[in-house]
Design a protein around this nucleic acid. Sequence first.
DNA 1: GAATATCAGTTTGTATACAAAAGCAACCGT
DNA 2: ACGGTTGCTTTTGTATACAAACTGATATTC
Lengths: 218, 218
Amino acid sequence: MDQPAPSPRSATRHKIEAALLDDIAAGLLQPGERLDETRLAERFGVSRTPVREALSGLTAQGVLVAGEKRGVRVAQYSRAELGQMFEAMQEIESICARLASQRLTLLARAEIEGAQAACADAAARNDRLAYIKANEALHMSIYRATENPYIFELASDFRRKTGPFRAKKLETQEDLHASVENHIDLLAKIFSEDVQTAVDGMRKHMTESFMRVLAANG
Amino acid sequence: MDQPAPSPRSATRHKIEAALLDDIAAGLLQPGERLDETRLAERFGVSRTPVREALSGLTAQGVLVAGEKRGVRVAQYSRAELGQMFEAMQEIESICARLASQRLTLLARAEIEGAQAACADAAARNDRLAYIKANEALHMSIYRATENPYIFELASDFRRKTGPFRAKKLETQEDLHASVENHIDLLAKIFSEDVQTAVDGMRKHMTESFMRVLAANG
DNA sequence: GAATATCAGTTTGTATACAAAAGCAACCGT
DNA sequence: ACGGTTGCTTTTGTATACAAACTGATATTC
């Protein structure tokens, strides 16, 4: 859904990257855990070469980090690092809110509202996994509304990196509904005539989001 | 200077990456030009494996792009893409200006002014290469003043990607002196008490910079 | 003459084999 | 008993070999 396989130029490598990202998101791979090339190779039934490429790709994305001694590990962040990361993310998201608000095309607005409906639907069904996906899609649609692919990618990158931490904050159905309410409020501000309202709305949204992340990951 | 080889964990790979970056910066590798793994391997006297890793690393950084048909090519941008890229860069730089202005420690200020002096010195000596390096260092010191490593990296990445295009706009000594004047003005605004002044100053600086880039790369 | 299909020649992706570096532990010396 | 050194084992980095995919071209047929 993110990349609809623009060029299936290296199927195995991307399959492995995706599988590892899933494992991390699902918590099967804990932050700080070490990844062994050989084990992964036999787990996926491939040689070390594509595993190696996947690992260096994820390392470049910041999902994994080259360990102090040996091997690569799942990135883990201290409270302070998490704070800096979310600060950066807040700045990026604020830019997105401003540009989206200024440029909002009919198509972009339709996509945002469609994603929002999908969120509400998933929350009503109490489908946590679907909600997380729909929520990602919602934010992505806001990024896309900036009409700037570089900013889109910047914002997407941060979402990838912080994904594991944000996931934890959505456990109960109340969490889901609260999140939906927050988004209704946020979108109203982005759709408002006043750009500053949109930016402030996004700042508030991100601050609240971060507070919940801290509470869940403290 | 950028990465003081934190872990010389793969010497050849980084040597190749650095060599290719140099070639691109020097214009030996034109934007759009295709890179052949095998040729590079024999040129550096190594096997295709480390070359391959270097190429995928640079691709991840956006310096190279996976060609439509085959091979990787030096990234080339249309006028429109260049505009979007500089727009994103302007947003990032503005964030840096704001945070730097808000947080400015004595150390950060000292580093910025030191870098500024190095710029002026290089301009006075009409040393174009030294000026480019000093100019990079100056902007880096502003990024560092944000006290946020993630924002620092974001900004640095854009600088890397746009480097080849910005380099072209500094040909004559007048260009250098004009650039120094611009920086004096910019720094005064960043050092001012008013945050909005700093942000506006950076926006103006980036806009002017982009205009000169467009003129040189049109 | 044009269009399609097939074939040859690159080129890239994956596998495996090999070598060197680094961690770890045991052993020896003091 | 403690520390240092040496040797082994594991892991990673690099090379090479192999197979599949894609490009381009030529030939054949309509």
